[in-house]
């Protein structure tokens, strides 16, 4: 099943692409004087085919959520190009932007916060349909039941009239997922969909998203800080550090042969179930992630890097080198 879908994915055409995408937040004092800008996404490029998943992984504050919001049209990019389904998204007006957004599903981190607490599940799922005026009442009702069944909240009657606080975390996240697919999107952006959930339901939720992806040939952008789950749930990984991509490749290539020093650190920090952990200390790069207001010169990782090449890494920003076909890494160690 997995192999089939991957093959199908490769044949699929490109669903989404970003080229040199930058999203900057202007910081103003007293709402007036510009004091600087937080470059939360700074020159990011990738493409995604239908039926495939790209995992974007990185530390807290590296700009993952901002990238997600830019893709959804919730943040305006300062520069760069976005293409979705063969259409250029830059310069759309408000109305077009709204209809564009409804074609991308959005799964958020905190399932409880993502659901209006005063609406029932039925109302929550009807909202996108009502807003986008899709079809008649009967059709809407049918669709709501359909998606509830798809996210396995069955029997539907048990859930449809409940309020979010009456559901467990996993069930809440299922409602969020149901809402994200109710408009039949082609792309789903899942921003840390499992990090607030209990460990025991995480796999269930990932399986669910994966199943929906296969059933509808969806593209998925999966954002996480924990690589332990990606092996079975993703085709590509992009490692993000300080608003830029450090490394980008197929899942296996990264997990089995990480190249960028940061990727290596990230992989070694992934919690592993091993009783021997009690006595061994983990290797963690020293220091804190860079400020995006005043990023370090040269390679953004150089203050924490063990392999730093003095005089180069701290001066020049590394280019993206193609270490292998389909495996690019932004690190001077791999310069040709």
């Amino acid at each position: 099943m997995l192999a089939v879908s991957v093959r199908r994915g490769v044949e699929n055409k490109i669903l989404f692409s970003a080229k040199d995408l930058c999203t900057w937040f202007e910081l103003r004092r007293w709402g007036f004087f510009r004091v600087g800008s937080v470059k939360a996404v700074d020159g990011v490029s990738f493409e995604l085919r239908r039926g495939e998943t790209i995992t974007i992984v990185g530390e807290s504050g590296c700009g993952k959520s901002t990238l997600a919001k830019t893709i959804l049209g919730l943040c305006l990019p300062a520069r760069g190009e976005l293409n979705f389904d063969g259409k250029r998204l830059n310069g759309l007006n408000t109305r077009q932007m709204r209809s564009h957004r409804s074609k991308i599903g959005y799964i958020q981190q905190d399932p409880y916060g993502a659901l209006p607490p005063f609406m029932t599940v039925r109302r929550i799922l009807e909202e996108p349909l009502r807003i986008n005026k899709t079809g008649k009442k009967e059709e809407m009702k049918r669709r709501v039941r359909e998606v509830l069944a798809e996210v396995k909240l069955t029997p539907v009657e048990d859930f449809i009239d409940k309020f979010p606080h009456m559901l467990s975390g996993g069930q809440q996240q299922r409602v969020v997922i149901a809402r994200s697919i109710v408009m039949k999107p082609r792309l789903i952006v899942a921003d840390e969909p499992i990090s607030m959930l209990d460990a025991s339901v995480r796999i269930e939720i990932l399986e669910l998203i994966r199943g929906l992806q296969h059933a509808h040939n969806l593209g998925v952008i999966y954002i996480t800080h924990d690589l332990s789950t990606v092996r079975h749930f993703s085709e590509h990984i992009a490692v993000m550090y300080g608003a830029k991509f450090a490394e980008k490749a197929k899942v296996k290539d990264i997990l089995d042969n990480p190249l960028h020093p940061y990727t290596r650190a990230l992989l070694s920090a992934v919690p592993k179930l091993d009783p021997a952990n009690v006595t061994t200390f983990k290797e963690v790069p020293p220091g804190e992630p860079p400020s995006l207001l005043k990023p370090p010169s040269g390679c953004r990782f150089h203050p924490r890097c063990y392999a730093i090449i003095k005089g180069l890494c701290d001066v020049e920003s590394p280019l993206e080198f193609e270490a292998k076909k389909g495996h690019s890494v932004a690190c001077w160690l791999y310069r040709k």
Binding site: R101, S102, Y106, P116, F118, E127
Partner: peptide, 27 residues
């Protein structure tokens, strides 16, 4: 709150967000 962001993502208009999403929360 994330649910407001979600509403924006699925295309809710400004006034819908104010009246259907923000006000009821404070009722």
């Amino acid at each position: 709150m994330p649910y407001i962001e979600a509403a924006k993502a699925y295309g809710a208009s400004n006034f819908r967000i104010i009246f259907q999403y923000m006000l009821p929360k404070l009722v």
